[in-house]
Amino acid sequence: MVLPPVSPGMSADIGGPDGHSYGAVLLRSEASHPIAASGADAAPDVAGILHGLRFSGWVAPPDRGWTVILGDPGAGVVARGRRGIVEVAGAIAAAVAGPVVAVQVRRDRQLGIVAWLDGVEIARYCSDPSVEPGADREVLSDPVGEDDAEALATALGRSAAAEDLRALLAEELDPDSVFESERLRSVLRVMGMPEWLVAAGSLPHDIPTGPRAAELTRLRAGETGPAALAAHGLIKKGRRRHAPPPIIDDPPRQNDGGMDPWLL
């Protein structure tokens, strides 16, 4: 399956020539009500997790049966304990039934997808482990985890689209013409998830094709309202000094097996 190239008119939506970094957690709306500013309508498990983790980001109203939790724009630390969006999703997945999916885009050059079903991890994909901060020159750029497409599609009730999903995840993209946001947009479409996620980097402004900023609940270090502003400034500054764990802990390397793959 060949992905369409990015057209000039699309660049503003998906990050432009430099590319955006962003991440989100998606879970079934019936598993978590939208988190209201007052907290009164929040599902105690998810709201409590976000508060306990001192999560910073936004919670969107339900869309197409999904609740979307967006990390502060970037692919860095969004919660205490140097947690990125994937680790936040894992904490939520351990507390709710049904599927939970984390998606992360780094500078539009890397797409990560991790999914759980009833608290059990079922899929972990990274389009290019070599883009991770701190990855050395031995880490290969080949995708890892595309074979998890069937488990992911089945968990989301889209088993008929498993082959299409696998082809999307395995596709080798030309970084000069196609961004990873385009791959993610196609994945979201195939899986029946909100496609406006690819424009999440526009926050704190309105999300093109998605919810307006005023419709989102803003969380700063797990808190809402003006009182959270002062403390969040210091926390955010500290988090920027760290990177969350890589999506793939032990990625394939050129010297695996004692032979340079270019010689095979």
Rank of each mutant, 00 (worst) to 15 (best):
R239M: 07
R240H: 10
Q254Y: 07
A230L: 14
P4S: 11
V96T: 10
A228E: 06
F55G: 00
P204S: 05
A115N: 02
I85G: 01
A160C: 04
R28W: 06
D256V: 03
A43L: 11
L152C: 07
V198F: 01
G52C: 02
M1E: 14
E223R: 14
G90W: 04
P252R: 12
R80L: 11
S7L: 15
A93M: 06
L165T: 03
R240V: 06
E150H: 11
Y22D: 08
A43D: 15
R183W: 02
E150L: 12
S56Y: 07
G222M: 02
L26A: 11
W116P: 00
H51N: 12
S141Q: 09
P251G: 09
A153V: 05
Y125H: 03
H242W: 10
A135K: 05
A79F: 10
M1A: 15
L173D: 01
E163M: 07
D142V: 07
P226D: 07
L184W: 04
D206Q: 09
D18T: 08
V25P: 01
W196K: 02
A123P: 00
E182Q: 09
G16S: 04
G238R: 15
R183E: 01
R253G: 07
R212D: 02
L117S: 03
E172A: 15
P245N: 07
C126I: 00
P261Y: 13
R241C: 09
Q254P: 00
G134N: 12
V68C: 09
S177V: 14
P211K: 06
L165V: 14
R82N: 09
V86K: 08
D118C: 02
A214V: 01
L219Q: 00
A230R: 14
D45I: 13
M191T: 12
G65Y: 06
G57W: 05
F55R: 04
H20W: 13
L165R: 10
P204D: 01
V114I: 11
V187R: 05
V144P: 00
V101P: 00
L234W: 12
A230P: 02
S11Y: 04
R64T: 12
Q110N: 08
N255G: 10
A161F: 08
E87Y: 04
A214N: 06
M10S: 05
R166T: 10
A231V: 04
F55K: 05
R54D: 06
A170R: 15
V100F: 10
W262E: 11
R82S: 09
A31N: 13
I92C: 01
D176Q: 13
V178I: 10
I35A: 03
